[in-house]
């Protein structure tokens, strides 16, 4: 989508065009869901995404960007705030949390084939979620949100250099989990050693 096409779409949505807003929703909701699943868990992702879109609808008229990346960054920043609000609410009223982190090894299969399926996406999200939270969030924003280092830094409230370091550390940790010794072999047999019998 070009910048002008997005600007028209956004303007129509701000004027109340349901089709335009639905297009924006369909373009960004998968990203919001995966980002929230990474930082908050898959169980809470849908509820937080619903709260996110309520806020997006409420503040849509005040958004003034004209590029898809800017809108995506804005929506993800709202999603992050909703997640922080949820964490604070749960802190005030503790409840039995069931952290649903997918078993990384349970869904192990051919990564190339899995990349085309929902199961492969969930498996990849599980891997990201196993990282330290700050590293997982930065990688999610950069890869899932397709944001550059500066937009990511603005959302998480860190300097670009710190964001870059977090992303690199996270990727190295992921590489270790996937088997650093197989990395040089290629992706023909990237199945984790734990289940590669």
């Amino acid at each position: 989508m070009t910048t002008s096409e997005f600007a028209d779409l956004l303007r129509d949505a701000q004027r109340g065009d349901e089709l335009a807003f639905n297009t924006l929703f369909r373009q960004n909701q998968p990203i919001v869901l995966k980002y929230l699943a990474t930082i908050a868990g898959a169980a809470a992702a849908e509820d937080l995404a619903a709260d996110t879109w309520v806020s997006v609808v409420r503040d849509l008229g005040r958004f003034s960007g004209d590029e898809p990346a800017a809108f995506r960054a804005w929506v993800l920043s709202i999603a992050r705030r909703r997640w922080i609000d949820d964490v604070r609410r749960r802190t005030r009223r503790p409840e039995a949390l069931v952290d649903v982190i997918p078993d990384v090894t349970a869904a192990a299969e051919d990564v190339v084939g899995a990349s085309e399926t929902a199961a492969g996406t969930r498996w990849a999200l599980g891997l990201i979620s196993s990282l330290p939270p700050d590293q997982a969030e930065v990688i999610a924003l950069r890869v899932i949100g397709d944001l550059d280092v500066h937009e990511t830094a603005r959302i998480v409230g860190k300097k670009p250099g710190a964001v870059r370091v977090l992303a690199h550390r996270g990727l190295r940790r992921l590489a270790e989990q996937l088997g650093a010794d197989q990395a040089n072999v290629g992706v023909t047999n990237p199945v984790p050693p734990a289940i590669d019998n």
Binding site: A114, S115, R122, A124, V143, L174
Partner: peptide, 9 residues
């Protein structure tokens, strides 16, 4: 693995 993140849930 990162490419798999772009898939649909």
């Amino acid at each position: 693995m990162l490419n798999a993140l772009h898939g649909r849930l």
